[in-house]
Write a protein that binds this DNA or RNA. Structure first.
Lengths: 219, 219
DNA sequence: TTATGATTCATACGTTCGTTTTAATCATAA
DNA sequence: TTATGATTAAAACGAACGTATGAATCATAA
């Protein structure tokens, strides 16, 4: 009784994760999901109640760990700093680096989940937006606080904007492993895909930090 | 005969633009579109052939101008430079500034189209990805060439990556007029929406240039 | 071994989807 | 004014959608 259920649930979540990533929420049907998972059509409604609930569970399975890990890393860094303010690079790495390193961890969804997350942040159905906002708010607030403290001379509004820009650059960098083709094609020849992921992190970090520390715009 | 057609076509395109922006391609039905446009259900198929063709026409109506304008601006800057290489800030402004300034031009789709474009870049159905890649390729290549020349000491692969990051930050900044709520809420109090748009351009430009010129990552 | 509750299965429900069809209505030129 | 081609309108098409139902099958404990 135990193994059948867990297997079925897990298989559905895996298939949903992959298909939602590839075709979006509306673009993925229950029949595709159950077909790919190799389970009966009714299994989704039996185990999750509805398509919406399945989508939420797909996210929760990964985000719970990610958010806890981000919190843990931040607390750890702050403890180590012993009252002194953190370096912006530490904070950026705690938030975005932790996210990006998920891509290499197949047990935590790997690239698939990251791409799903990236694309979902810009295509939110109402119920997804509400859900993500709820799941993210606390962590986001804590990291913004940390940035405020790390950059006391920068107006808070500017920091919030730049945090937002960083999110966009990161989402897109991940979501666009295919969309990348739109911008690249031949230009990047000499890297296989594992190489590419390993190098993406420092590349993106440099870019994010450069943007975060750029001179303030004069209005 | 003339006026009826044009009005109907235009009304459909406007409604499609708005609804595709708000709910995505799959999330928008023909009945919503024709309902909002105040035309008969069959009108879309009569005037455009299919839902896919309508989507393409929604993009073409705006992208044709945008791409021409980007080319024009680049040529103009290069002519003025008379052989000397352009400054990165000029190139970035030619590409992203031209895009962002569309937001203020309601005759060219304004914010609505920009948000549609932003969200579509990360949620591409196969046919949309192919279409956008085709429409964008030439302009993208020209701007990348310009960046290669402007930054001869930076490896081309790095420039391509950073171009990609800039695209992401911009898409997200635009698409997320609502998703912004996820990151902001109370933090930005003292700006109305026109103010916000006016200030977005220099803010984003600072960020993009900071990222583009950041120190190279050491592997 | 049998009773019980959990899970799987085949099937069907009612809706909505994009598209097509056929007839009505319109604007224009002969 | 009438003929013609373009556009609009109402209705229906088959397919696919998410969901619900009730019987069959399974694992487990008494």
């Amino acid at each position: 009784m135990e193994n059948r259920t867990i297997d079925t649930r897990e298989r559905i979540l895996d298939a949903g994760e992959r298909l939602f990533m590839a075709h979006g929420y509306e673009g993925t049907s229950m029949r595709q999901i159950t077909g790919e998972a190799g389970v009966n059509l009714a299994a989704v409604n039996y185990h999750f109640g509805s398509k919406e609930s399945l989508m939420q569970e797909v996210f929760r399975r990964r985000l719970d760990w990610l958010n806890e890990e981000r919190m843990r890393v931040l607390h750890e860094m702050e403890a180590e700093a012993a009252g002194k303010s953190l370096k912006p690079s530490q904070i950026v790495d705690g938030f975005f680096g932790t996210l990006l390193r998920m891509a290499g961890d197949e047990n935590r969804g790997g690239m698939t989940f990251l791409r799903l997350l990236g694309r979902t942040l810009t295509e939110p159905s109402e119920f997804i937006r509400a859900f993500l906002a709820h799941e993210y708010q606390a962590v986001m607030d804590r990291y913004k606080e940390a940035l405020f403290k790390a950059l006391p001379e920068v107006p808070k509004a500017e920091i919030v904007w730049r945090f937002h820009f960083m999110l966009g650059a990161t989402s897109y960098a991940i979501a666009g492993t295919d969309a990348l083709r739109l911008v690249t094609d031949w230009q990047i020849e000499d890297e296989d895909s594992t190489d590419r992921l390993d190098r993406l992190v420092p590349r993106l970090m440099s870019f994010l930090l450069g943007g975060l520390r750029a001179p303030l715009p004069q209005f």
